[in-house]
Amino acid sequence: MDRHRESFVPNPLLGSIAGLCPAIAVTSALPEAILLWLGTLVVLFFLWMSIPLAKNLLPERLLTPFSLSLMAISASAYGVLASVLWPLLAANLNIYIPLIAVNSMILHYLRANLRPGKNQLKAPLSIILGYSFSFIPIATLREILGRGSLSLPSLTLAPRILFELKEAPLRIVASPAGGFMILGILAALYRFILHTRRSARP
């Protein structure tokens, strides 16, 4: 594989189909999606920073349960922060902020990096880039089509509405059914682009 020409990272959401549950339920609106995306990033970075420290203090047998507890603690901390800064949006997210602690994408990252003998944790940059470049555009698309508006989280109670159409073009897209379909189409498109690029190489 010619690495320096490869601009597509294996996408955790559209490629490996990991972390799908919040992607279907939460991406119907961009403010909630940004909150959840931020939470996932916070947990990933916290793990990346704290696990090497834990490796120096704890034996291998305690590393996995300790890491899982750290995931839970960081997700809880983010939940508290979100409820203070964005109370209405955090309330809308309801059960999905605690579910960051069992996000399959983060668990996959832990499994790949907690192997014995591995002292340095690989930076989760590729996961973050791949996740961000799929999660946020999906949320943008779903909010515009499904709700006919585009908004951003703000520090007031209500999110900041950037624009609002007269009516939503395709209301079904805001529902979980629409989420499954949009993800299916984008996953197919991702595979098509990947396949085309691989075929185009000599």
Binding site: I17, S175, P176, A177, G178, G179, F180, M181, L183, G184, I185, A187, A188, R191
Partner: peptide, 12 residues
């Protein structure tokens, strides 16, 4: 996965 997701959407 793409077809499965589309099928899940229709079922949903």
């Amino acid at each position: 996965a793409p077809t499965l997701l589309l099928s899940a959407g229709l079922m949903a």
